[in-house]
Amino acid sequence: MIEIKDIHKSFGGNHVLNGITAAFEPGKISLIIGGSGSGKSTLLKCIVGLHEPDNGKVLYDGQDFSRLNFEQRIPIRQHIGMLFQNSALFDSMTVEENIIFPLEMFTDMSKSEKLDRANYCLERVNLKESNKLFPAELSGGMKKRVGIARAISMNPKYLFCDEPNSGLDPQTSILIDELIQDLTEEFKCTTMVVTHDMNSVMGIGEHILFLHKGEKWWEGSNKEIAHTNVKELNEFVFASSFMKAAKDKL
């Protein structure tokens, strides 16, 4: 379980996060949504330790991550898997090497065990026989799937996805959402997804956090979102005429 308590973050004089508190449960997908500049990605980066919060706590199963030094964070980081917006695959490595890399760094697995694990992860994301390809040879959707395969290679307890659907066609986007859902159930991990994608919100949003101007504006589920009266949330979720029509039918 991940808890964040009163997270504040500013860059120069610009306050990006103003006292955000929330809890994210294991085995559940939590979506962080909000307009551009609302602080979603900054919040995610504060949670995973890429940014240090100015104030507040980030608790991983009760352990205050924000107070730990680099060495003390390593055991927690080994349980973190993250899918980046642009996949962030290592260019100089093949697909297989990308997945094996964290295993080589932190485990004493034999070569064949590592290969088996890489093959399992690739099979899990429906990318068999792509082992020897380089990231430059992959399509956007394939890169995302390899990113997910790398993220799950260490059996993560916490899975973070930064805009997993950006730049993908609707069908691939749905496949990625389904994959994230399946993996969350399989690994019983605490999954957090930063997204703009309304299909994801309606499809996998068991727990949704809506940020507006660096504050938590609304929290609930995809079932509740259609019936909310929060003006900013309605403007954000039902911005398109298609979504407005869909809401009217509900």
């Binding site: 995973v48 330790g49 890429l50 680099f70 964070r73 390593i74 055991p75 980081r77 080994q78 973190i80 993250m82 980046f84 917006q85 642009n86 962030a88 695959l89 290592f90 260019d91 890399f101 964290p102 760094m105 932190f106 973070f160």
Partner: peptide, 18 residues
């Protein structure tokens, strides 16, 4: 620099690699 702007360095840090 390219690794930085394509978040590959962030990926290393998330994994717990120095």
């Amino acid at each position: 620099g390219s690794m930085r702007v394509t978040e590959q360095i962030d990926a290393l840090e998330i994994m717990g690699i120095n």
